[in-house]
């Protein structure tokens, strides 16, 4: 079974630094980005199985990235993580087809659990 390929995008490096080893430990292949413009270029090149993205970022925001990712690869699952959550952004995220919406702060175990559920969906289990 091939490794799930995951993109993590957050403009706070500490978030990427926490998530990458935790997800790699679960057996996933993880690319991290702190610039949304770089992540946007990357999704033109690579179809990720799962994207974990922050919402509020300079330049391209997480909602724009979510839209672009889903347009290019509808099978890609997206998990939104945000430090500035509102009901509107939660509703909009689900309307755009996110797998889950997680407000910060969160424990690593919480995101690991959600990623495991997303993997089950991706693999059709």
């Amino acid at each position: 079974m091939s490794k799930l390929r995951i993109m993590v995008l957050d403009d706070e490096p500490i978030v990427c630094k926490r998530l990458k080893p935790a997800l790699e430990k679960q057996g996933y292949e993880v690319d991290t980005f702190t610039q949304s413009s770089d992540a946007m270029k990357q999704i033109e090149q690579v179809d990720y199985d799962l994207i974990i993205t922050d919402l509020k970022m300079k330049g391209v925001d997480g909602m724009q990235l979510l839209t672009a990712a889903k347009q290019r690869s509808p099978k890609t699952e997206v998990i939104v993580i945000t430090g500035f959550a509102t009901m509107e952004t939660a509703k909009e995220s689900f309307h755009k087809g996110v797998f889950d919406f997680i407000a910060k702060p969160f424990k690593l175990s919480e995101i690991q659990e959600v990623v495991t559920r997303a993997e089950a969906k991706i693999r059709g289990e």
Binding site: E12, I14, V15, G83, F84, A85, A103, K104, P105
Partner: peptide
């Protein structure tokens, strides 16, 4: 970081 995120919310 968690405390900053809590303030943000």
């Amino acid at each position: 970081q968690e405390s900053l995120e809590m303030i943000n919310q």
